[in-house]
Each structure stands twice: as C-alpha cells, then as structure tokens.
Amino acid sequence: MSETNLQDWAGRSATATETADGERAARLATLLGHDGDPAAPLFPLGHWLHFSEDDVPMSELGADGHAALGGFMPPVPLPRRMWAGSDLTFHAPILPGQTIERTTTIESITEKTGSTGRLCFVVLRQELTADGRPATTDRHTIVYREATSVPDGSAAKPPRTDSPAPAGWDWSRSVRPNEVMLFRYSALTFNSHRIHYDHPYVTEVESYPGLVTHGPLTATLLLDAFMSTHPEAAVTGYRFTAKSPLFANEQIHLVGRETESGTHELQAIAPGGKTAIAATVTTKN
C-alpha cells in the first residue's frame, strides 16, 4: 500500500442532505419487535437508515456489492471491509420531516499489520444537524483487510451451538437474527454488501461460515435492549467496538450492567461466550 497516496484522502469532506423518513423509522421499530409510529422521533441510530453509501448506480458497485472505492473514500487496495465500531453523541432527537444534513470528514487513515495480515483503518467523523440544529455526532471506523484463503469447496458451517446466558450482568436478553432479519435490515439501510445475503459468495469467496450479521444491526439490537430495560433513561452517548463476527441463526446474548451513575457497560455475546460487540452507553436520567 502506498501511504502517501492514501493520506491524500485524509481531511476530505462531503455534505449530503435528506429528509428524516418516519415510515422508514417505523419499519425499523417493526424489525425490532415494536409498534412502529411514523410520527415518533427516530431511534437514536435512525440516521443509519439514511445516506446509504451504496446508493450509487450498479456500474459503480464493487465485486463485494459495496460502492467501489476511489471516489470520496480512499482506494484502499484490501478487498475485505467491516464496520469496526462507532462513537456517537446524541445532541437532540431527529423528528420525521426534519431536514437532516450530514457532513462527513475523513478524519484519519491508519495502516497496520495484524495476525491476519495487512489492515487499514479509516475513521469517518459525521456531524448531523436536523433543521439546522446539532443532532448527532457519529465517529465511525471502517477496517479493511486482506483476503483469506478458502478451503476446497466451501467454508460453510452450521450455526454455532447455543450457550447459556452469562452471569454477573444486571439484565440480559437473547436474540437470534435470521436470514429474513438480515434481508430486512439490508433493505432498510440500502446496504448491498454481499456478505449479508449471498451465501455462496460469503462462504466461497470471503471464507465465512455463513451469512454475516451486520455489525450495526447487532449494535442496534443491543441499544434497543438497553432502552427497553431503561425506558426512563435519556441516551446521550453510545460507543461500541466490534470484536468478532456473528452469523445468521446464531443465538446472541445481549447483556448490560451499570458501572457508575449514568454509565452502562453492554455486550453482545456470541455462542461459546466470546464477546462480539463491547459497548458503553451514557445517559441523563
């Protein structure tokens, strides 16, 4: 990789505008198992339903289904990409019908070498306003990595075996995202990344054992579980880091506990007890 070339993209900014869509927000509520109200404020992560990065002509999509790199995003020459995490601050709710303006700045581009080979981390800082007032700051990280070898035939495997809910948490909830939920979330966010719906591709090309559950979907399920158990709390911040992937039809334990007043530790735990997502929520009661 040429560091000089990639660093030319650092500091670039782009601004886009959309109208907050109450119907889309209501469909997310339905996906989460709630009654959807098109007039209700957007879920704190509801801006992810807007400004899809894959909303480009078919001719501008890469082999993985994502928008090809080299336009606004740096042309990282590593073929695999994942959402590594976000650090969000919520300034004010977004209401249906409001004009949302998002300014995205490429904050940093960092190349590293890990146990799986070369990695590149791209940090995007997104500032969102609703009708001109600050609404959400979302600093999110994308990681790019090298391709892995695929066993002869396919890397497909059945879902991992369920494991008991872990002890030591204030609350827990279990979910099992399936192919239909993954499809619906991809449709809501206009996410065309093939790892979430194309089983031959994800197992024979990217060497995963099955369809990958979206990191943002798991992060949404985790925050929704917290909000359902703390209906009186006003969420002011949410930070999460993806530790390991989850796959369709696997049981996920969503757990949380208060670490100090107004701060809660959350985790999404994979079969076998491994942490898939580690998160922190801050609240104003």
Score class of each variant (00 low, 15 high):
residue 170 D to E: 14
residue 204 E to K: 14
residue 235 V to I: 11
residue 151 P to Q: 06
residue 146 E to W: 04
residue 153 G to V: 13
residue 162 D to T: 11
residue 49 L to I: 12
residue 60 E to G: 00
residue 22 G to E: 07
residue 1 M to R: 06
residue 237 G to A: 10
residue 222 L to C: 07
residue 48 W to G: 08
residue 77 P to H: 03
residue 111 E to L: 14
residue 183 F to S: 06
residue 178 N to M: 00
residue 121 F to Y: 12
residue 29 A to R: 00
residue 155 A to S: 12
residue 123 V to H: 01
residue 53 E to L: 02
residue 284 K to F: 05
residue 21 D to A: 01
residue 275 T to E: 11
residue 114 G to P: 14
residue 130 A to P: 03
residue 97 G to V: 12
residue 281 V to C: 02
residue 232 E to G: 12
residue 241 T to W: 05
residue 185 Y to G: 09
residue 18 E to H: 02
residue 41 P to N: 09
residue 223 L to G: 02
residue 60 E to M: 04
residue 100 I to A: 04
residue 270 A to Y: 13
residue 37 D to G: 07
residue 235 V to H: 11
residue 264 H to P: 05
residue 32 L to F: 01
residue 59 S to D: 05
residue 4 T to K: 15
residue 233 A to N: 04
residue 177 P to T: 07
residue 125 R to F: 01
residue 144 Y to G: 07
residue 43 F to M: 00
residue 121 F to I: 15
residue 141 T to D: 11
residue 137 T to Y: 05
residue 87 D to P: 08
residue 209 P to E: 00
residue 63 A to N: 06
residue 251 Q to Y: 02
residue 152 D to Y: 07
residue 65 G to S: 09
residue 200 P to F: 10
residue 131 D to L: 10
residue 261 S to W: 08
residue 167 A to H: 15
residue 118 R to M: 05
residue 271 P to K: 15
residue 150 V to R: 13
residue 263 T to M: 06
residue 197 Y to R: 10
residue 1 M to K: 05
residue 36 G to I: 12
residue 198 D to E: 13
residue 179 E to A: 11
residue 122 V to R: 02
residue 211 L to P: 02
residue 190 F to T: 00
residue 3 E to M: 09
residue 255 V to C: 09
residue 285 N to G: 11
residue 246 L to P: 05
residue 78 L to E: 03
residue 99 T to E: 14
residue 73 M to A: 15
residue 29 A to V: 01
residue 193 H to D: 04
residue 240 F to D: 13
residue 155 A to Y: 04
residue 146 E to L: 04
residue 46 G to P: 04
residue 67 A to Y: 01
residue 237 G to H: 12
residue 163 S to E: 01
residue 100 I to H: 07
residue 18 E to I: 03
residue 276 A to G: 15
residue 68 A to K: 15
residue 154 S to K: 04
residue 230 H to R: 15
residue 158 P to A: 14
residue 201 Y to G: 13
residue 62 G to H: 00
residue 61 L to V: 02
residue 155 A to L: 06
residue 270 A to F: 13
residue 96 P to G: 01
residue 139 R to E: 06
residue 12 R to S: 07
residue 97 G to T: 15
residue 152 D to N: 10
residue 261 S to V: 14
residue 129 T to I: 08
residue 206 E to Q: 05
residue 273 G to V: 14
residue 4 T to E: 15
residue 276 A to R: 09
residue 132 G to R: 12
residue 43 F to N: 02
residue 210 G to A: 12
residue 185 Y to F: 15
residue 83 W to M: 04
residue 266 L to C: 14
residue 81 R to S: 00
residue 217 L to Q: 06
residue 154 S to W: 00
residue 74 P to W: 14
residue 162 D to M: 07
residue 115 S to D: 13
residue 197 Y to K: 09
residue 147 A to E: 08
residue 113 T to A: 14
residue 248 A to G: 04
residue 83 W to E: 04
residue 202 V to W: 07
residue 2 S to M: 07
residue 180 V to Q: 07
residue 277 I to D: 01
residue 101 E to W: 12
residue 218 T to E: 14
residue 45 L to Y: 04
residue 28 L to R: 03
residue 184 R to L: 13
residue 8 D to C: 06
